[in-house]
Design a protein around this nucleic acid. Structure first.
Lengths: 338, 338
DNA sequence: TTGTATGCGTTATCAC
DNA sequence: GTGATAACGCATACAA
């Protein structure tokens, strides 16, 4: 019933447990003969290493903790997929949690992951998160942390982002190039840097053009489908003059398009729309949504590589880099002036 | 530098380590006074329990292992999301891996999860998997296993599936009710039981009606976008008489719709379409795609609840149940006879 | 090249 | 109620 341990093998072979341990870990001190014998016997006896015991002993879990706002979302599951792929080849397990954009949950998850002594943490913070003690828990103790997408300035760590500024700029510039004169930006909450950056990209593009930057043309929401609908409704019913909208994500773009269509306003004929993220649906809705592509999978790969490097190279890192992945403007029908 | 342990607290408070341990674990033997004192001091000293040590001692990791073919896919990420949600509320962590439908990887993942002594395993097997020693590793040692979606007959365990037969039946019946006379089924590879079942549902519905079941009306593909396009092209160019198609998944339905629209054939006016899975895009494309909803999220929840029940109730289970989650026909525009 | 001794931090079994 | 002690399975410093 009970699992065989290295002691069982030792007894059977008249070796000491340390020899068994060394042989199984390919320690070069052990002679080929005994190593082979030990490995063979271990297999015969159905030996399965108790990683828990080894972890406890070595204070290494070979586990990476991941916190995302929501697993079930294309961008995040792509990132997770990329993380898992790299982690697997490097012998790391991946423990995943979702914060649901709820600070309390994020905080609790972080503490749990810490208590489980994950070797490193990769995360994208939730929308409510404004304090970072739960992250400092890790960084203070030299446990590597890598941020992606929704990053945090206050904490020194490697960060993987897409160039949100560039994305916002490109999207807006494209609308201007299409002849839009009154462009509205429905953006995300400004406590998240990505939404700040997208918004700044928007502002820059406007300012570089001959258009006026109008405060009332920037609305910040939580970028859900419901909020998107409410926001566009308020704009339209309020008589806001607009001929183009740069939305902070595709979901918002979608809700806006649906609302407009329902109310007899044509996209792109009357109002041009650009979204952000290249969600799978954006390609196939009618009209297809112009958007900014974020390379989720390779962001995950990069994050994992960076983190594992830190885990393996114990020497402390002095210069943390922020890797900015390029964005790509995908022009589809929602923004094509006919 | 080093973490404070229960011994540090014990020394400071002149208690024994056991008392600290008991107090921290709310053992009723400890008096309220000392418990409060200990908890307060623990907090002050920044004590963080070393879960690794506790796990090692108790042989419980409070961790659930999950293996899916591909994380980055809506159905699977939904299931994972459901698993995580339940696991979190019950105090379990979730370790996730993707097999990429590769047997070797699946095997290696299973062994790693076992070595890490996960308390239970939830999985959907890969397309290449035909032997199950890597799963028996768990079941032989009474470590609970729950299968979902792609299940295995050979192993006794709880299983969560959707009723694919019922789904196929409902979809086809709906088309018949809409007045379709020549219905084609573009189905998936028959080595996977789920596609067999969907196809059987199709056949049953046809047979129960006044329509003839025509062998040439069933085409099996790998259900990719490209295959879908090729298949519908061949049908149309071949002059196949058809007024409705039941597609094995939404992706195929989408590719069929796009092809038909490009070729001046109207959906649903000329040809009715029903898909399968309720992918996010199916709701928002034009025409919106009628489909069969698979409750991924609640499948994940159910799987996690079942697994955690087994983990907590040590007594061995004799009757394993296969839970068949109901499918839901979602009627949208692609199949509404106008 | 192999063996001996020790300890990781916690919980469980006794004892008092 | 609380304390002393052992044990979980493994890896490693030190010895031989």
């Amino acid at each position: 019933m009970s699992e065989t341990t290295i002691h069982d093998i030792a007894k059977k072979l008249n070796f000491s447990a340390s020899t068994i341990s060394r042989a199984l870990n390919d320690n070069p001190l052990i002679s080929d003969g005994t190593r082979n014998l030990i490995k063979k016997t271990a297999k015969e006896m159905g030996y399965r290493p108790n990683t828990m015991a080894a972890n406890f002993r070595t204070k290494k879990t070979n586990t990476i903790g991941v916190i995302v706002p929501l697993i079930n979302r294309h961008f995040f599951s792509s990132v997770i997929s990329g993380i898992e792929e790299v982690a697997y080849t490097q012998g790391f397990a991946v423990t995943i949690s979702q914060s649901n954009d709820n600070f309390e949950k994020e905080d609790k998850i972080a503490h749990t992951l810490f208590a489980n002594r994950v070797d490193g943490l990769i995360l994208s913070i939730g929308m409510e998160t404004t304090t970072f003690d739960h992250i400092k828990l890790f960084s203070d103790r030299k446990i590597p942390v890598v941020f992606f997408d929704r990053i945090v300035d206050e904490i020194k760590a490697h960060k993987i982002v897409v160039n949100d500024f560039e994305g916002g700029y490109k999207a807006t510039k494209h609308l201007i190039d299409q002849g839009a004169k009154n462009i509205v930006h429905i953006g995300g909450p400004l406590n998240l840097k990505i939404y700040q950056d997208r918004q700044e990209g928007f502002c820059r593009a406007i300012n570089e053009s001959s258009l006026e930057l109008d405060e009332s043309s920037i609305i910040n929401t939580n970028l859900t489908r419901a909020e998107g609908t409410k926001t566009i409704e308020k704009l339209i019913k309020g008589g806001k003059k607009l001929d183009a909208i740069f939305c902070g994500n595709d979901t918002t773009a979608l809700s806006v398009i649906i609302y407009l269509q329902k109310n007899g306003i044509k996209v792109p004929d009357d109002i041009l729309i650009v979204g952000f993220s290249n969600e799978p649906f954006s390609e196939v809705v009618t009209p297809s949504i112009s958007t900014i592509k974020q390379p989720g999978f390779s962001m995950g790969q990069t994050a994992a590589r960076l983190l594992i490097n830190q885990i393996n190279n114990k020497q402390k890192i002095t210069d943390f880099k922020t890797i900015t992945m390029p964005t790509e403007l995908i022009i589809r029908n929602s923004s094509k002036r006919t």
